[in-house]
Simulated scan of single mutants.
Amino acid sequence: MKTANFRYLWIGQTIANAGDIFYAVGLIALLYEATGSAFYLAAVPFAITASKFSSGLAAPLLLDRWKLDGVLVFSQAGKTLFLLLLALGITSGQSGNLLFMFLCIIIISILDGWAAPAKNAMLPGLVPSDDLVKANSFTASMDQSVQLGGWAAGGVLAALIGSMSLIWMSAGLYAFSTILLKRIKLQPIPIESSLKEEEIWSRLKEGWIRIWKSPSLRAIHFILLLETAAGAVWIAAILYVYVKDQLQMGEEWWGYINASFFAGLIAGGLLGVRYASWIDRNSRKVLITGAFGVSAAAFTFGITAVPWLALAASAFFGMMEQLKNVCLQTAVQRFTPAALLSKVYSAQSSMLALTFGLGSLAVGAAAEKLPIYLVFMLSSGILLLSAGYTILRKNRLSS
């Protein structure tokens, strides 16, 4: 984990993630100034999710032609270019041109959708196999730390320097990230320099076929699908209703619950780093404990009307979720040949983006018809089903 390549990866990605958040904060503020419409603000996450889903479907073709480190650099450099175009367009008076703004958002999101499978697939080539749990835990902790502090810092910076300056700052962070990622030297994996037209469809399916034909990968992704669908209850809109209707607290508690959730994720990642060897040896126990833990946390969160208990349940959910996901992602990396790993992650990215999008619509509709505690009970039930499946398939979930 102490190699220069790994340092360039996690530092470059951390800087890029901070740029993503600052860009989102600045863009939301500018969109609201330009339109005054909550609908357009809600359209931003939908556009991002849809774009990442489509880019995940097409990613295998790109990953067949380029090395993983090349894809990561291309993605980040492209994001830098289009964010600069967006900033220049807004500065020159295009802020009212919603088509222009959303076109830039979509292209940036497509490029970002290629980065995630490339980054995850690169890790086994950058660290020894025995360090995979620690590396996955560490990178997850850094990602969540940025998420925890980034939105608050972005809000403060937007107030101090203005939304437009924040977008320019994001472009600078993107450029610096590109420079760091360019320094990664990855051992080459054989790739195809060209593809025949009749091979394109088969290449697009390779990751999906690998997941379906491998009993271990199929079990892992079924669990991920269940938990992604159940996790849709943690979106901002549902938590906002929960705080208002069930806890009967002010809006600041919406922020506290979000913060406690991310704090739990960070704690889980740090535990993964500290006890990586033990977790690696006992991954089945960690997976089963984590699966039941998230179900219990969602149940407790759903039934309580005590604010401090809700904070504790939210933090516990985040910690258990992180430990469990570190084990699952490490298993994916070990069960998949290096040449197919990026394609498996591309398929995973697409299926989870689609599941989360549909899950968000479903829980939103359920929250309109049902008391909010029943929505969390439904989520807890799905997570309990996932826990039961984890026990049934425990022999396929660790390497």
Rank of each mutant, 00 (worst) to 15 (best):
Asn5Lys: 02
Arg7Asp: 12
Leu9Glu: 10
Ile11Ser: 06
Phe22His: 03
Val25Trp: 03
Leu27Asp: 08
Ile28Gln: 08
Leu30His: 05
Leu31Asp: 06
Tyr32Lys: 09
Leu41Pro: 12
Ser55Lys: 04
Pro60Phe: 07
Leu62Cys: 04
Asp64Lys: 07
Gln76Gly: 01
Gly89Asp: 02
Thr91Asp: 11
Ser95Glu: 14
Gly96Thr: 07
Ile105Arg: 07
Ile110Pro: 04
Ala118Phe: 02
Gly125His: 00
Ser129Ala: 14
Ser141Tyr: 11
Ser145Ala: 07
Gly149Tyr: 12
Ala153Trp: 11
Gly154Asp: 10
Leu157His: 05
Met164Glu: 15
Gly172Asn: 08
Tyr174Ala: 12
Phe176Met: 15
Glu192Tyr: 13
Ile200Arg: 12
Arg203Thr: 15
Lys205Ser: 10
Ile211Glu: 03
Trp212Ser: 14
Lys213Trp: 11
Phe222Ala: 08
Ile223Glu: 03
Leu224Trp: 14
Glu227Gln: 12
Glu227Arg: 11
Ala229Pro: 00
Ala230His: 06
Val233Ser: 01
Trp234Phe: 12
Ile238His: 08
Ile238Phe: 08
Lys244His: 15
Tyr256Gln: 03
Phe261Lys: 06
Gly269Trp: 06
Val273Ala: 02
Tyr275His: 14
Trp278Gly: 09
Asn282Ser: 13
Thr289Asp: 12
Thr289Asn: 07
Trp308His: 08
Glu321Met: 13
Val326Phe: 03
Leu328Gly: 01
Thr336Ile: 02
Thr336Glu: 02
Lys343Ile: 00
Thr355Lys: 02
Leu358Ala: 10
Ser360Val: 08
Ser360Leu: 06
Val363Trp: 09
Glu368Gly: 09
Ile382Ala: 05
Leu383Thr: 07
Leu383Gln: 10
Leu385Phe: 09
Gly388Ala: 05
